[in-house]
């Protein structure tokens, strides 16, 4: 077993996540897609921790930090979305273009 299948799986998940993040209309699904991309990165970190040039635990610890940051991001993101919905009545990202004006 080598590192290549893990990296390929991570690339597939990352690209799907990217597509979702840039094409979906619902802000919550966009957030979810971003989570998927973060997970792809975590998979890379852990795969390298085992099969990389220098095997060790540093990659796992990094992925832990990553998960923490992702949790914080989701919490704040959902809070912002709820507030936005309360003020503008929509979670559609195509309507969120007030910065243009």
């Amino acid at each position: 077993m080598s590192i290549t299948p893990y990296l390929t799986l991570a690339a597939i998940l990352f690209c799907i996540g990217l597509y979702g993040a840039l094409s979906k209309k619902n802000a919550i699904i966009v957030l979810l897609s971003i989570e998927l991309m973060l997970n792809a990165v975590n998979l890379n970190l852990i795969a390298f921790a085992k099969y990389g040039p220098k095997p060790g635990l540093a990659g796992q610890i990094f992925s832990l930090f990553n998960i923490t940051v992702a949790a914080a991001e989701v919490a704040v993101g959902i809070a912002i979305l709820i507030n936005l919905y309360r003020n503008r009545g929509t979670t559609d990202v195509t309507d969120m273009d007030t910065m243009k004006r």
Binding site: Y6, I28, L31, L32, E35, N39, N42, I46, A47, A49, K50, Q60, S63, L64, I67, A70, A71, V74, A75, I78, L81, I82, Y85, T91
Partner: peptide, 29 residues
Amino acid sequence: LGAEFVGWVQVLIYAGAITILMIFGIMMT
């Protein structure tokens, strides 16, 4: 991959907490 702790954290936080949070978000909106 030999990362049992990270695996369980993944299950707890992502599959548990974040998914629930998302569902709450959907309900709230």
